[in-house]
């Protein structure tokens, strides 16, 4: 009860605004064909869940983000490790190239990637991986560089091998920073995913908005927009939760952006919860592949007009 009260108190303004929006549409202060009331939007989401196979689109979008995230973090950590260890001398020389590459606006790259990889799934995953690679790489590189040299020397003098120094000294110490990079990468990737899906996709949340816009279905524009907003919000929340749970020993400083400014109690994640999260990630990947396969089949079905395809399920 107290939790509910606290929630209501903290979000009083959101609730008040929603009520005002509902009222203004119902009382015809605003044109409800342009600004449908929130109740209608919520109803549309339910309707879409039943008729449009929303689950498929959600899974496809999540799969794209997750797949590119896994690829980008693997590559980012690996190359940061190489450039801070084995190829130490090469980094100052390569830095300008990296900085310029990271600066390239990913939306400009999108047409280029389409030219290279074709309009299919690979181009999207390549763009998303490119986007999330840079934060992961730069964060991991700085973290690996700034590991306490005393700890490394101590480990070495006790006869630890290079690999065990990396896995037992360097990595644990730099993991919070690496995770921060991953988090920024995910946020960027989700951001760009929607744009990528809007400019040409088989399925996904961005595609729903785009298609609803093309068909001038106002309720669905709002409904799909609401879904995108909510999934971004919960993605953020989830990463925040993971951050706090995994790195509960870390001192909290000023949050890096507004989204993380909400304070939350810090407690370590149990092994059970962690394995559950791992399993959930695996499940999303598996389901995503399957749903993507289904979407491809639907795309290649000549009897369905592309724009109407998702509405006729």
């Amino acid at each position: 009860m107290r939790a509910v009260k606290g929630f209501l108190g903290r979000h009083a303004i959101v609730i008040a605004l929603l009520c005002l929006w509902e009222l203004s549409s119902r009382l015809n202060w605003t044109d409800s064909s342009y600004l449908p009331p929130p109740s209608v939007v919520a109803e549309t989401v339910f309707e879409m869940w039943n008729r449009v196979n929303l689950f498929m689109h959600l899974m496809v979008s999540l799969f794209r983000v997750l797949a590119s995230l896994l690829l980008a973090s693997a590559l980012g950590i690996l190359s940061a490790r190489l450039l801070s260890g084995l190829l130490k001398g090469a980094y100052p020389w390569l830095e300008s190239l990296f900085k310029v590459s990271a600066l390239v606006n990913p939306y400009c790259l999108f047409p280029l990637f389409i030219v290279f990889f074709g309009p299919g799934e690979y181009a999207k995953i390549a763009v998303l991986s490119w986007v999330s690679f840079w934060p992961v790489f730069f964060n991991s590189y700085t973290a690996f560089k700034n590991v306490d040299p005393l700890l490394v020397k101590t480990a070495r003098s006790m006869g630890a091998s290079g690999a065990s120094i990396f896995f037992q000294v360097t990595l644990p110490q730099s993991l919070p920073s690496v995770f921060n990079g991953i988090r920024v990468g995910v946020q960027m990737a989700f951001f760009i995913l929607i744009a990528a899906e809007m400019t040409g996709a088989v399925a996904g949340l961005g595609w729903i908005v785009h298609s609803a816009g093309a068909l001038n279905q106002v309720d669905r524009i709002y409904g799909a927009g609401l879904l995108i907003v909510l999934s971004g919000f919960f993605l953020n929340r989830f990463l925040n939760y993971l951050d706090r749970g995994l790195f509960f020993w870390k001192e909290t400083d000023t949050p890096p952006n507004a989204a993380d400014a909400l304070e939350r109690p810090v407690k370590p994640l149990s092994a059970l919860k962690l394995s559950f999260i791992g399993f959930a990630v695996f499940l999303v990947m598996a389901l995503g592949v399957y749903q993507l396969y289904r979407a491809e089949i639907m795309l290649n079905d000549p009897s369905v007009v592309p724009e109407y395809r998702i509405w006729t399920e």
Binding site: Y34, F191, G213, I228, V229, A258, L262
Partner: peptide, 20 residues
């Protein structure tokens, strides 16, 4: 809270609404 919530909005979700 409202501002922090709004800050997380994906602008592409809003783009169609802005067009509208």
């Amino acid at each position: 809270p409202l501002l922090y919530f709004l800050a997380q909005f994906n602008p592409f979700a809003l783009f169609s609404v802005f067009l509208l």
